[in-house]
Write a protein that binds this DNA or RNA. Sequence first.
DNA 1: TGAATATTCAAATGATCTATTGAATGAAAG
DNA 2: CTTTCATTCAATAGATCATTTGAATATTCA
Lengths: 224, 224
Amino acid sequence: MSGPESTSNPKRALYDSFAAVAQALAHGHRLELLEHAAQGERSVEDLAAAAGLSFANASQHLLLLRRAGLVRSRKDGKRVLYSLGGPDVLDAVAAVRRIAEQSVADARDVISRYFQARDGLEPVSRQELAARLRRKAVTLLDVRPPAEFALGRLAGAINIPLKTLLRRLDELPRGKEIVAYCRGPYCVLSFEAVALLRQKGFKVRRLEDGYPEWKAAGLPVQAG
Amino acid sequence: MSGPESTSNPKRALYDSFAAVAQALAHGHRLELLEHAAQGERSVEDLAAAAGLSFANASQHLLLLRRAGLVRSRKDGKRVLYSLGGPDVLDAVAAVRRIAEQSVADARDVISRYFQARDGLEPVSRQELAARLRRKAVTLLDVRPPAEFALGRLAGAINIPLKTLLRRLDELPRGKEIVAYCRGPYCVLSFEAVALLRQKGFKVRRLEDGYPEWKAAGLPVQAG
DNA sequence: TGAATATTCAAATGATCTATTGAATGAAAG
DNA sequence: CTTTCATTCAATAGATCATTTGAATATTCA
């Protein structure tokens, strides 16, 4: 861990440190690992599977993320559990995401092609949802796998994983508005859930981001 | 510009785009160029000199920053003027900085060794300063070079560049509190200005960040 | 039109990063 | 106390990045 290191110039040394943190964010696989680690404490094996990486590769990326302060690790028996370093990490990822959404042609393409949903599915902001929940006017639907739901969820949410959704439509109200959410702003689960439910005639919208952002904002959650 | 590109997986393609933006932040020289570009529109030559880089090298880095949406460029006669891409860029840099300050050992070392000022000089937050200015209780001192002052400054600030400060102490009030600022949170000019002025018996504090952040926050500025 | 100037492009070299392999660690279970 | 299992370390080859050099492009000024 040295980089273009400090020519004994304190300011340059400092900026190299900042650059090292940005460098740790600068890989798709690591961003994906961060998204999964943000759901709660997960083992290396778990995270590797979730991100579709080989075990050793995930381990290397996680070590790098840890050195940059983006994740924390804790030893529990013979496994190591990784979790997000702190709320600033979500801020950094969100800021980088916003820049890419606005300025990177590739990103805009993918978004308009696969996630036009952004407008089409009328995402609900955190504030709006929080306000509406105080009036009890919404059914909260968590479409993540049960293991992640178990680690923590929005207070009052019910869990129907996307995979089982088609079989369990009868658990959802027809009249009331539903808000679906999952891991974060580009987690595909909730996009697909909204598409499917709309097709079946439900009144449903998507939370614009996910559980980690909700929790980081200090809004009500139920812990695992 | 491709990276570990998309295996036709839209989410992965998107995350690779985000990673490309982070990658553009991931170099000390580029962070320094961003700091200078954040003061206002500057030519490549100017920015190269300010960041202590060769001309060609600065040009390359700036092109890379532009592709990532972190800076904008505009042609004016035979020069190209670069400026910050948008306010999200300052957010991203600030988030990365906060992570490094908390977690990267190198960064903590440098800060405590050269910038203990952070505590010792009792930095003033933007909000606090804005509130105090409404009560007219402060002299605002901009210690950047005149060229940058000319591009924009906090409303009501006077410009005494650090280099000339010692010769121009008589322009500063003895009783009233002074707040010094410069380019950003780790711009050394204001640190040194505060140290010097305190030694001379002035009542002076530092603004915790600089002109670009003040402007991005929508607080009152005077344009160039 | 032609010379001067600011910037970008193209190419090349050395440095750094990624992914994989197989060995090493260290805690738990038999 | 040996075996097993989850993870990390060490070493490697291939890919990408940083910097420099010299040529190419545009725009102004004569």
